[in-house]
Write a protein that binds this DNA or RNA. Structure first.
Lengths: 208, 208
DNA sequence: GGAGTCAGTGAACAACTGTTACCACAACTG
DNA sequence: CAGTTGTGGTAACAGTTGTTCACTGACTCC
């Protein structure tokens, strides 16, 4: 079933990935709109012109990075949102998963937080698209929950968006304290958990 | 009481403001980390070297822009948070005020949303500082509210931060639909209002 | 095994960048 | 009114940028 790539195509993918990795590294300390193509190729150790074999522009590379950073996140979203247990347990698990993801993929998270409102339109749109898909998945999961009985479709989507935004806010918070002492990180975990809980309480009493 | 400035100092302030305005304009379509000092001076019609008479670097200019964009916003925060009426009325007034502010100062709002997680550290820090001050003001106002009886200090700050983040999210939403048809903007207003309301409901039942 | 494909190279281009040192001249200060 | 201050201007610097063109040579396919 699995189609083994030719040597040529494999090498191309390798270079492409090296460009993506190098760019992601450089983007830790600047925004995409100031990332130069020469900067990236220099980092990889490849001629500037080679860049064009993989991307039309740095904006194009940015869109690919969005795919890499968010595309593979859908399973996790589903895990978070469809896990069992009571409300508090699920929230704690969700916050834990977010913290873990930030710890293992800090550059990806930083990139998304930065470019979500960044200076490159096509990348902004790619991120909004993915986030809208996340919100849709969350909404589908919410619909299945008995708590959602009596909710309108609009309100379910409204809540789903609130959850998605809150997850991003939380991820960004964790990013800020990545190198901070354990105590500080515990504090952030607690704040994020309680904010989620408050939203959850609001949800429980929405139809009162 | 009012100290009239000399011709010289007045002219300097005028040039400085022109630089800030030009930069803000240019930043509608790029991030601060890619803003060149020559770009700004060219826009104003002044020699590149004149820039140094006002700012050490574009990052320095960015910090000044944060002051301009957020410094004058504290009165509005206080108006929103200490207005009278029942919960729903206050929320509707708040969302209205946010919408109005986005409509009158779109470039400022865009700048803050963009650079909050942007590539220039000093600017990020300046924004975080101001937002922390906002959260503190909101917390003070919340403390005075009878609904907050029995709340811990930590939880009040937690809620205040949630409110501040939500205001920014809402502002960013309004920014995205600034040029959209009235119907779309009404939809956004409704979503923002309901999200605020849900949070407010969660607040009412926090101590259950 | 021979022809063709194509990822990556190297050189050159015009245009741009931040920063320096020095100068002009209007506005302030005594 | 003489002398100082300081905003803004000019010219030049060494580097950088994106993009083009013609090229090499290892892999692919028939």
């Amino acid at each position: 079933m699995s189609h083994t790539l030719g040597i040529r195509q494999a090498q191309k993918l390798k270079t492409r990935q090296a460009l993506l990795d190098a760019a992601l590294g450089l983007l830790e300390e600047q925004s995409l709109s100031s990332l130069g193509l020469r900067e990236v190729t220099r980092e990889v150790g490849v001629a500037p012109t080679a860049f064009y074999r993989h991307f039309r522009s740095t904006a194009d590379l940015g869109v690919a990075l969005v795919e890499e950073a968010l595309g593979s996140l859908h399973p996790m979203i589903r895990t978070i949102v469809s896990s069992s247990g009571d409300s508090d347990q699920r929230i704690e698990r969700a916050v834990g998963l977010i913290a873990q993801h930030v710890a293992t993929h800090p550059a990806h998270v930083r990139f998304i937080a930065r470019e979500r409102h960044g200076g490159v339109q096509s990348v902004r749109e790619a991120i909004q698209d993915q986030l809208a898909r996340f919100a849709d998945e969350v909404k589908v999961a919410l619909t299945k929950d008995p708590v959602s009985a009596g909710w309108t479709d609009d309100d379910l989507l409204m809540l789903a968006n609130l959850y998605v935004d809150q997850m991003l806010m939380t991820a960004s918070l964790f990013l800020d304290v990545l190198e901070a002492p354990e105590e500080e990180r515990r504090r952030v975990t607690q704040v994020a958990t309680r904010q989620m809980r408050l939203i959850s309480i609001g949800r429980d009493h929405w139809l009162d």
